[in-house]
């Protein structure tokens, strides 16, 4: 039950993008098409899940026993960067068109603050290994959800008569804001 709540909390109530405003860059950058948004979301979910577990292992098995918690940022970034490299190679091998669609946003997952934020939150809230894993999956699903909703709306917007001065970046910001407002409706349902 507790794990279920944790998952829902990370995915919906405390959505990384729409409640914490982390990872906004790909949220706006790769949300033009639902298909590419979905694959971006899956890539981020993969990196989040693996990095949540690996960073937990590194933190609790190496950094804490040897009293070098101060290295957590460096160690976490190292993990995340390596994982992103791996994902990039994999996607390039499996689907070149997808690789081209994601463009610069794929290597930029490295600097996606949602992922470092996830690892740091897990440390801060002293999650167990299983909790970290669930937290990572939940956050990834939440990120994908936000991206896909945004992409769905933006695909519709292309067919809508948007006033001239709101076109492009303007309407995107308005949509993002409205989405965040909608997600605020969940606030407080589950703490953390």
């Amino acid at each position: 039950m507790k794990l279920m709540l944790l998952f829902l909390s990370a995915a919906i109530v405390n959505n990384f993008v729409l409640s914490y405003f982390l990872g906004i860059c790909p949220f706006v950058g790769v949300s033009k098409r639902v298909s590419s948004a979905l694959s971006m979301g899956l890539a981020v979910t993969f990196v989040m899940t693996i990095s949540a577990t690996v960073t937990w292992l590194i933190y609790n098995l190496i950094l804490v026993p040897y009293n070098v918690e101060i290295l957590e940022y460096v160690a976490f970034i190292l993990v995340i960067a390596s994982l992103v490299q791996l994902v990039e190679m994999f996607i390039r091998k499996v689907s070149k068109p997808l690789y081209d669609t994601m463009g610069i946003y794929l290597p930029l997952i490295t600097t996606n603050c949602a992922i470092l934020g996830l690892a740091l939150f897990a440390v801060l809230r002293e999650y167990s290994f299983i909790e970290s894993l669930v937290f990572g999956i939940g956050a990834g699903v939440g990120f994908t959800l936000a991206l896909v909703i945004m992409a769905g709306i933006r695909e519709e917007l292309e067919l809508s008569p948007v006033p001239k001065h709101f076109q492009g970046a303007g309407i995107t910001m308005i949509v993002a804001g409205s989405l965040a407002l909608a997600f605020m409706g969940f606030a407080g349902l589950i703490a953390n």
Binding site: I62, L63, Y66, V68, L71, A75, L78
Partner: peptide, 10 residues
């Protein structure tokens, strides 16, 4: 410890 752990991880 820092050097060895980070170097090892890298």
């Amino acid at each position: 410890v820092s050097m060895v752990s980070m170097g090892g991880m890298g």
